[in-house]
Design a protein around this nucleic acid. Structure first.
Lengths: 326, 326
DNA sequence: CTCCCAAATGTAATCGATTTCAGAACCGAG
DNA sequence: CTCGGTTCTGAAATCGATTACATTTGGGAG
């Protein structure tokens, strides 16, 4: 590995000049050429650790998500990455696995590595962002609200819950259940509230048996669906609180010979890699990629010194009703 | 952010002693206690950039994959992460998007950041690993072979292709097509060779029309399946070269009213988040997580100084035949 | 022809942790 | 009581890039 000193020597200039060539302050054309040539010949790459140590910041942003195996989050990651890499930043993807300790470990690393900022979908309401915020580094919360005064990008969760439910009502289903993620995650609670809204607006009673909080994973959807099917009075339709719950619910229904639309299903979020006929299930599409793009742009603005008060962007969703053309 | 000097002052020792406390060389018990106490009071976290600059290596490993949206790779990533984080290493996930330039950018970053090693599923046969290998940092290739003399972990691809095909033969299908990834990726070519083996072993002719190379993505599977269905002499079964091709093929078949087993389908790799009845499709399960675990362990051994000649581990697969119990 | 200012360049300090080297303190053996 | 050898400890050099400050150079104004 060659250093800035090697380049300086070969080019016949001082190390300071080499640095200036790469950081864009005034250097004469001939020296610029000499330095670039020398750098190429030596295959010089600046040592990031040294640069970070001196400047106290690195062009890296951390993206912390609770489940790397959920396509919703990887799609979002793509959005973040596209924006960030265009701006010369690299993205470090950290999988907190929805565990608070893993999450805070990654946040510690972000601090110790002097990363420029953090985009995080928190593991829970009680996630502790104090240390990272204390450093003054910008933080953008995605998908979920936090207890902190930071920028955020969320889906219109309550509206999504309502649309999904209304579509099932419109299709004539009578007993519509809801399966959501953990109640302590606001995303899950809000979507459930939307479900409740839709039913109430129709003057229907809310049967508490039909409201299930589970995990945001396939197994959670499966377990809750099994429970619902075991009820004395079965639901004839179900709203799935996220994509994976939807998958789990449909799996169980299929195994019981109740493939949609035998039982109505509406999913909040796109079904990943689905092989179902698109007309069988209602899908409320969530613009995950767009959420990532928005969050990354907000973070970059903050990194560049934007000081305006914290903003929260709410993204609207599109409903793709069952039975509709693709 | 407090530094080692602050801690030293508060504890009444020299910075060198503080460093020694955290790196486990001989320090008297009382000073250890004093330092730990001071560190806790100041909420001290060592500055990684400084540490990396001095020691010329950081406890970070890079994992470079061609498609972060493919569950096969994220499952592998989980395996890598579990092993690495247990050993005190963090994992940086880099998405090369199957593009050589993005791939080499990430490898440059790995070098400049002094990362300890790299696990990579190369974008293509012509991936250039020279720079990273020149630094002497260990590299482990996963999923795909490389032109370099490095450790590797791959699936038994040819055998997987053969098993998948044989199962369709056993089920009585006559005209079995194959849709694989890009021909320039050895994984794709080997699986296709396995398909050919199985047919030849049965004394069947190979119709070149039935062999399609596409991309390892859903749209690739869709396009190739459409082409196959448009042939004058349609196939009555198809082997999908990876999970996403399988999804695409099944989608198209469903849209044409040919849901498996109307047309036989065997997939190399698990169908992600499938809602199909498990008896409809043959699946050759690939131990993706295990691949990640193995690769991470190999890499850690190398990082610790293991000098033995390069090894390649081949992982066997399990067939789950259509119609079999779960 | 002199003076002043701006542009270009170099010197050296700096970021924070690790590590070499040398010295201090202490032990037991002779 | 002295000597050789551990065991601790601190001072200072070091990693490689950036940058404040000083110096040189050249051009234009007066």
């Amino acid at each position: 590995m060659s250093t800035i000193y090697d380049v300086a020597e070969l080019a016949g200039v001082s190390p300071a000049t080499v640095s200036r060539v790469f950081n864009g302050t005034s250097v004469s054309d001939e020296k610029v050429a000499a330095v670039r040539d020398a750098a190429k010949r030596l295959n010089f790459t600046p040592n990031r650790a040294a640069r970070t140590l001196r400047t106290q910041n690195s062009e890296v942003i951390a993206l912390v998500i609770p489940d790397i195996e959920n396509p919703y989050f990887t799609e979002m990651a793509r959005g973040v990455e596209d924006v960030a890499s265009k701006a010369g930043y690299s993205v470090v993807l950290c999988n907190s696995d929805a565990q608070l300790d893993k999450e805070s470990t990654y946040l510690q690393i972000a601090i110790a590595e002097h990363m420029s900022g953090v985009i995080i979908a928190t593991a829970s309401e009680s996630s502790n962002l104090d240390p990272i915020i204390a450093t003054g580094r910008p933080v953008v919360a995605v998908d979920r609200h936090t207890a902190y005064d930071v920028d955020g990008v969320v889906m219109a969760n309550r509206a999504a819950g309502t649309s999904a439910t209304k579509d099932l009502i419109r299709a004539g289903y009578r007993r519509i259940a809801y399966i959501g993620g953990p109640a302590h995650i606001d995303t899950a609670a809000e979507r459930a509230a939307g479900w409740q809204d839709a039913l109430t607006a129709e003057g229907r009673e809310i049967d508490p048996e039909l409201l299930r909080f589970s995990t945001f994973r396939v197994d959670g959807g499966r377990a809750a669906m099994e429970e619902l099917l075991a009820l004395p009075e079965r639901p004839d339709a179900v709203v799935a609180g996220n994509n994976l719950i939807g998958v789990g619910a449909i799996q169980v229904l299929t195994e019981h010979g109740l493939t949609p639309p035998a039982v109505g299903v509406a999913v909040i979020g796109s079904l990943p890699f689905t092989t179902l006929s698109p007309s069988a299930v209602t899908v409320v599409r969530l613009p995950a990629r767009h959420m990532g793009v928005t969050a990354a742009n907000m973070l970059l603005e903050r990194i560049r010194g934007d000081q305006q008060p914290a903003r929260t962007v709410v993204l609207r969703n599109q409903v793709h009703a069952a039975g509709a053309a693709r």
